[in-house]
Lab assay of single mutants.
Amino acid sequence: MAAGGDHGSPDSYRSPLASRYASPEMCFVFSDRYKFRTWRQLWLWLAEAEQTLGLPITDEQIQEMKSNLENIDFKMAAEEEKRLRHDVMAHVHTFGHCCPKAAGIIHLGATSCYVGDNTDLIILRNALDLLLPKLARVISRLADFAKERASLPTLGFTHFQPAQLTTVGKRCCLWIQDLCMDLQNLKRVRDDLRFRGVKGTTGTQASFLQLFEGDDHKVEQLDKMVTEKAGFKRAFIITGQTYTRKVDIEVLSVLASLGASVHKICTDIRLLANLKEMEEPFEKQQIGSSAMPYKRNPMRSERCCSLARHLMTLVMDPLQTASVQWFERTLDDSANRRICLAEAFLTADTILNTLQNISEGLVVYPKVIERRIRQELPFMATENIIMAMVKAGGSRQDCHEKIRVLSQQAASVVKQEGGDNDLIERIQVDAYFSPIHSQLDHLLDPSSFTGRASQQVQRFLEEEVYPLLKPYESVMKVKAELCL
Rank of each mutant, 00 (worst) to 15 (best):
L124R: 02
R371G: 02
D144L: 14
I57P: 04
A206D: 07
L443S: 01
D317G: 08
A256E: 05
T350G: 09
I427K: 06
D117H: 03
E481K: 13
A308Y: 05
D6R: 12
L121E: 11
Q41H: 12
A206P: 09
Q320T: 09
H86W: 02
A344T: 04
R33K: 14
H400T: 02
T111V: 00
L46C: 07
D6G: 10
C305S: 14
S112D: 00
Q221P: 03
I369A: 10
N71Y: 10
D441H: 15
S448L: 14
Q409W: 11
C304V: 07
L468W: 13
L179S: 12
L311W: 00
F433N: 06
I176T: 08
D268G: 11
L484H: 15
K246I: 07
E279T: 06
N357D: 09
Q241D: 03
V364C: 15
Q164P: 01
R459Q: 15
K246A: 02
G419E: 13
P378L: 04
L174D: 12
S407K: 01
S9N: 13
H159Q: 01
S301V: 10
L183G: 07
E343Y: 03
E463D: 11
S257P: 05
T94G: 14
A47H: 04
L42T: 07
H263S: 01
L307A: 11
R188S: 12
T227C: 12
T239N: 02
R459E: 12
S301R: 00
G116C: 14
D191S: 11
K82W: 08
W45N: 15
S407Y: 01
N421T: 06
D73C: 13
I139V: 13
R85F: 02
R426P: 00
L362C: 03
Y114D: 05
S31D: 15
E425V: 07
I249E: 02
L255W: 04
L468Q: 15
A78V: 09
Q325F: 04
I385C: 13
H86I: 03
C399F: 04
G418C: 00
P435G: 12
S447P: 15
E213S: 08
K35D: 04
T58M: 06
H437K: 11
M299D: 02
A143P: 00
I373L: 11
F433H: 02
L271D: 02
L307M: 13
T158R: 00
S261D: 02
D117N: 01
Q221I: 08
V254Q: 00
Q439R: 09
L46W: 02
V475I: 08
L183P: 03
H217I: 12
A47S: 08
G240Q: 05
K284G: 09
T38Q: 10
Q428M: 08
D398S: 11
P133Y: 12
E64A: 08
E64V: 09
S395I: 03
E220T: 07
L275E: 08
Q439V: 12
S261I: 03
A453T: 13
P467H: 03
L377E: 05
L124M: 14
G104I: 12
Q161M: 11
D129R: 05
V465E: 03
T58K: 06
E81L: 01
R85W: 10
K246E: 04
I237S: 11
R37G: 05
S434R: 11
L275G: 05
Y466N: 14
S334I: 04
D191I: 09
F30T: 06
I265V: 10
D422P: 12
T94W: 00
N421W: 01
M76L: 04
F145S: 14
